[in-house]
Design a binder for these strands. Structure first.
Length: 461
RNA sequence: UCCUCAGUAGCUCAGCGGUAGAGCGGUCGACUGUUAAUCGACUGGUCGCAAGUUCGAAUCUUGCCUGGGGAGCCA
């Protein structure tokens, strides 16, 4: 494979013979030659190619080349006479693969709004910002795997189709083979025994329970896969299909859970800063003047840690009016979380030990029973980026909690079996992958950090 | 789903009762080792959809659709 543009820009040597394959960002015609800026997605910058009019078919070829056209340029690397680039390619051969009619090609050589780019989801990755986002997204994913693999975690693939409503909450997408116009019925109700799985099935809302199963065999595991929520959420930080990272550790308590989450985030930020410095500089310059400082803040400082009870006390004595009431027992609202992370601490805050009533049944009941060993990591500008807990490993307590939540213990028979056979204290957390990428890049809308966003009424691309 | 703002040229927007504008883009030309090149000319529209008010509606009213921001739900 010939070196890609990122490699050539970094370490290409004069007189080196090279082949560029990519898409033309801009063409500048001169009297006896033309400049082509070719981008192949390997980095933000393109490679400037100088195409002489001496080339065969120059006239007809150059006329048909415009922004968006796909080309192969063969030639020799030479020091650039102009400013702005160290080297450029003196073309000896030029192939036009596909034209891009400038009258209709939706991408112009100018700034486009993200709203507009969402309408051309099949082309937007060819823009500077979106390509930088997706390179950073790739680096985040790589860093996540590398972090866990280095720590001895096994990557486990949890099912996408599931019969269990993991948390007893959250709208799920149904998976069915039944004819929706004429479903089989018994006594007027839909007869799921006739459906593909013989019972109702859904797209997963979390791989946590399966991760717990695997942690009880491999000690430390993580999942990294797609997750689906059928909630009618129309916000800049919700998707109907998003990716989630869920580590689960046997023989681990809440303290270990928090420590892992913090070193995990630090590792991922460090990795992206090291491997995507050019893209990060771009975000700093064009998207959010604080992304580099934020990254360094994450990497170099300890996260703040407070209990829910302490957080409530801090909010109560805040010299600011909140729209929603602050009172022990009530869940923290967005405005409260933002105040804690953005105003008070100005860095990620881990809030722990939430009231039992407002958290899921599987979270470990604390001494006294008023709180559970839960933790949320609240990030500036994003809100909740990680939610985790120590899991309830005591069978009797877990069964009580399931019943108290109005759920049927029978439906959780294999989950509770984990507490019958060789139970151990364990803990884990869930990280919203897109929120991490948002946090990293400063992109304000989550639909712009996933290549093909799914949200209510949005499934075109 | 709720609150709020907005939909006018390919894009970003101005116009807010008298019948359509700018910048950018695109096309053509000039000029030039250029860098979102520059300069000149040209090109461009069911004013989101439907009904209503009015002599007359892009402009006022109502409904609907779509998008942004905020909220809820959460990751």
């Amino acid at each position: 494979m010939t070196p890609r543009i990122a490699e050539l820009l970094k370490s290409g040597q004069p007189d080196q013979l090279v082949t560029l394959r990519g898409w033309v960002r801009t063409k500048r015609e001169q009297k006896t030659f033309s400049f082509l800026e070719v981008n192949d997605g390997s980095c933000l910058a393109g490679m400037q190619a100088v195409v002489s009019a001496d080339l065969p078919d120059y006239e007809t070829l150059i006329k048909r080349i415009s922004t968006g056209a796909s080309v192969t340029v063969e030639g020799k690397l030479v020091p650039s006479q102009g400013k702005g680039q160290r080297v450029e390619v003196q073309a000896t051969g030029l192939i036009l693969h596909g034209e891009a009619d400038p009258e209709t090609y939706p991408l112009q050589k100018k700034r486009h709004s993200f709203e507009y780019l969402r309408e051309i989801g099949h082309l937007r990755s060819r823009t500077n910002t979106l390509s930088a986002v997706f390179r950073v997204r790739n680096a985040c994913a790589t860093a996540i795997h590398q972090f866990f693999q280095e720590q001895g975690f096994l990557w486990m693939h949890t099912p996408i189709i599931t019969a269990s409503d993991c948390e007893g909450a959250g709208e799920m997408f149904a998976v069915t083979q039944m004819d929706l116009n004429n479903p089989p019925k018994v006594d007027g109700k839909i007869d799921y025994s006739k459906d593909f799985f013989g019972k109702p099935a859904y797209l997963t809302v979390s791989g946590q329970m399966e991760a717990e199963v695997m942690a009880m065999a491999f000690s430390n595991v993580y999942t990294f896969g797609p997750t689906f929520r059928a909630e009618n959420s129309n916000t800049s930080r919700h998707l109907a299909e998003f990716w989630m990272v869920e580590p689960e550790m046997a023989f681990c308590d809440l303290q270990g859970d928090m420590d892992l989450a913090e070193s995990f985030l630090k590792y991922v930020f460090r990795y992206v800063m090291d491997h995507c410095s050019e893209d990060m500089a771009f975000f700093q310059e064009r998207i959010d003047k604080s992304v580099i400082a934020t990254a360094e803040n994450i990497i170099n400082n300890e996260f703040a840690r407070v209990t829910y009870t302490e957080a409530i006390a801090l909010l109560e004595k805040a010299d600011r009016k909140f729209e929603y009431p602050v009172s022990w027992g009530l869940d923290l609202q967005s405005e409260h979380e933002r105040y804690l992370a953005e105003v008070l601490f100005q860095k990620p805050v881990i809030v722990t030990h939430y009231p039992t009533e407002i958290k899921a049944f599987y979270m470990r009941l604390d001494e006294g029973g008023k709180t559970v060993s839960a933790m949320d990591i609240l990030a500036p500008n994003i809100g909740e980026i990680i939610g985790g807990s120590q899991r309830e490993e005591r069978l009797d307590v877990l069964l009580d909690r399931i019943k108290a939540s109005g759920l049927d213990p029978e439906a959780y028979w294999w989950y509770t079996d984990l507490r019958r056979y060789g139970t151990v204290p364990h803990a884990g957390f869930g990280l919203g992958f897109e929120r991490l990428v948002q946090f990293m890049t400063g992109m304000t809308n989550i639909r712009d950090v996933i290549p093909f966003p799914r949200s209510p009424l949005n499934v075109e691309f």
